[in-house]
């Protein structure tokens, strides 16, 4: 008995290892996915260890040194300094923290809500409550996310948390729509019918039979969305609706520097460039994730 049980456990582990190996193979076939992965990992690393990585950690706070204001990029200040004499590179590193937090929190709120709405809407397609919730979703979809987020953020006090809420409200319908479409195409598949005929309860059918088949597209969209959510967050902070100074935020830094363009171009160009780098990193990674989860099966 002991042997049999042990061999079963080994079997399960071997099957798992095999699947991970093959997934990694599909992911790593494209070199750009690896580049994306390395970029994302570096950004995460920098964000976590910002106080140790940044050359001037104290510049992330209320620090003023007018003596070295608006210095161009140099060895001491690779991205130059801003109008208060703060090192832009250090501030960008610290800004990564809120940017990533923004993306993660928004997705943690948005994905479960959107997926649940989409699952219920899709599985019970044709019933009145399904029509109702999907029409509500359509109303949200009709408004561009940035406009909706701006409108909501303008109503609330400008804090990081409120800007996260604003982006979340405008973001969930996209997941609802995605999951809705996929659920409709799956709900008449024989394997769902088989579960129904066995007498499995509807809740379990939706979340345990149908949802796991959507994980590929959902994870892919999440990775790609990280970049876009961060951009939307930066747009909010650009117009002053996000994190307030002196805490560094990429959007705020770009808008602050805009006053000094084109003479002191580095003040806004480098933070803007970092936004581009973040979006690019998550897009490359997202393509790899798509490749890993959907092809070769």
């Amino acid at each position: 008995m002991y042997n049999e049980e042990a061999s079963m456990v080994l079997l399960a582990r071997a099957a798992q290892r095999d699947r991970i190996k093959r997934a990694w193979y599909r992911f790593s076939r494209h070199k750009l996915s690896i580049v994306g992965l390395i970029m994302v990992l570096s950004i995460v690393f920098i964000a976590i260890f910002a106080p140790y990585v940044a050359p001037y950690p104290e510049h992330a706070g209320p620090y003023v040194d007018f003596g070295s204001a608006c210095e161009p990029p140099s060895l001491a200040h690779p991205f130059g300094t801003d109008a208060m004499g703060r090192d832009i590179l250090s501030r960008v590193f610290f800004a990564f923290r809120d940017a990533l937090l923004m993306g993660i929190v928004v997705l943690i709120i948005v994905v479960p809500i959107g997926s649940t709405v989409g699952l219920i809407g899709g599985y019970f397609e044709g019933k009145w409550f399904s029509t109702l919730i999907m029409r509500i979703t359509d109303v949200f979809l009709a408004i561009p996310p940035l406009v909706l987020a701006l409108a909501i953020a303008a109503l609330l006090r400008p804090t990081l948390l409120n800007s996260m809420m604003a982006v979340s409200v405008s973001w969930w319908p996209w997941y609802a729509r995605l999951v809705y479409g996929m659920t409709i195409s799956l709900k008449n598949e024989p394997f769902v019918k088989a579960a129904e005929l066995q007498g499995m309860n509807k809740f379990k059918i939706m979340f345990s039979e149908i949802l796991p088949n959507h994980l590929g597209p959902i994870l892919t969209k999440m990775t790609l969305d990280m970049g876009w959510v961060i951009l939307t967050g930066a747009s909010l902070s650009f117009v002053g609706l996000g994190e307030q100074p002196p805490t560094p935020a990429l959007g705020t830094m770009v808008s602050d520097g805009a006053k000094y363009l084109p003479t002191y171009w580095w003040i806004s160009v480098f933070p803007a460039l970092m936004i581009v780098v973040i979006i690019l990193a998550f897009n490359l990674l997202g393509d790899g994730v798509r490749e890993m989860l959907t092809s070769g099966e």
Binding site: E189, P190, F191, K193, A194, A195, E209, P212, N213, L215, E297
Partner: peptide, 11 residues
């Protein structure tokens, strides 16, 4: 069912 390709949950 007729087609075992679709009657077994792929995940």
């Amino acid at each position: 069912f007729q087609d075992p390709g679709t009657s077994l949950n792929p995940s």
